[in-house]
């Protein structure tokens, strides 16, 4: 069966600017995402998660290894994914709906269709009133919702979300998680989701990949079998708490473990 994404033996090192030889960031990273599967990547800060996205998005070239999207090797090729970056990254001189339209037309949608989709979905997620506003007037949470919508509406089957809620306060973050969950459970797109938060990963994912600190490699893969649709009620589930503790143990810094 074709996978939405296949990463095989990926290595990435950067030439170190202070001439200490190459700096290894990713070491032998291999994993896959099945069609319609929600996979979270969890790992310490600076472990190379954004770098992995840059490789998948074709922004950087791997030192070695292969990346396949829909069964085809796409190393160094851009424009194959729907992407939600770590910061909202909306063009400040475009209105909210124009921002969505721009992303959709770049991804290959026809202009009129893009516009119609943008307006329809902004209304649907309760942001219809902001369609003609400029992004800086929106709260951080609203900007992230627009940024997510941009990725959700993209015609590309694989969605890559880089810590979408990292910059939000805890309460907004919880709202956003359940909001994303409900939208995704409707559409069932293939998702690679990067996060720092164990709870977030457990609540959303079908599978969790745990990345070690730099140089990063995948140290554990965990199936999350809770039935869908899920809700926050999951948080008090004993199985949930158990998995949370297991993940926490894996992610603890080395010094603290001793």
């Amino acid at each position: 069966m074709k996978h939405a994404l296949e990463v095989n033996g990926l290595h990435k090192s950067f030439a170190d600017t202070r001439s200490r030889g190459p700096q290894q960031v990713l070491v032998d990273v291999s994993f896959h995402i099945a069609e319609g599967e929600f996979v979270s990547l969890i790992g310490p800060s600076g472990s190379g998660k954004t770098t992995l996205f840059h490789l998948i998005g074709g922004l950087e070239l791997p030192t070695s290894g292969d990346i396949r999207i829909d069964g085809r090797s796409t190393i160094g090729e851009q424009g194959h994914i729907a992407y939600m970056p770590q910061q909202a990254s909306l063009m400040p001189w475009l209105t909210v709906s124009a921002n969505i339209e721009l992303a959709l037309t770049i991804s290959g949608l026809e202009k009129r269709h893009a516009r119609q989709l943008a307006i329809e979905w902004l209304n649907r997620i309760g942001l219809g009133g902001t369609a003609n506003q400029f992004p800086h007037l929106l709260s951080g949470g609203m900007q992230q919702r627009v940024s997510f919508l941009r990725a959700l509406l993209s015609p590309k089957p694989l969605m890559c979300l880089d810590e979408p809620f990292g910059a939000l306060d805890a309460l907004t973050r919880m709202h956003m998680q359940t909001w994303l969950l409900s939208l995704w459970e409707e559409a069932k797109r293939s998702v690679l989701f990067v996060t720092h938060s164990i709870e977030e990963a457990l609540l959303l994912s079908d599978r969790i990949l745990v990345l070690s600190s730099a140089p990063a490699t995948i140290v554990r893969e965990i199936e999350v079998a809770f039935p869908r649709p899920r809700s926050e009620a999951l948080w008090s589930d004993p199985a949930f708490v158990g998995m949370k503790q297991e993940l926490y143990g894996l992610l603890k810094p080395a010094e603290a473990r001793r």
Binding site: F53, H54, G57, G58, L59, Q78, G79, H80, I81, A82, Y83, P85, Q86, Q87, S89, M91, W93, L102, A103, I106, S107, G108, S154, K156
Partner: peptide, 23 residues
């Protein structure tokens, strides 16, 4: 970060110029 974003989703150099660098 805007350059990176637009390139990741497949913006051509021309598109990047007209839609990001120029404005």
């Amino acid at each position: 970060k805007l350059v990176n974003y637009l390139r990741m989703i497949g913006a051509s150099k021309r598109k990047l110029f007209w839609r990001l660098e120029l404005p």
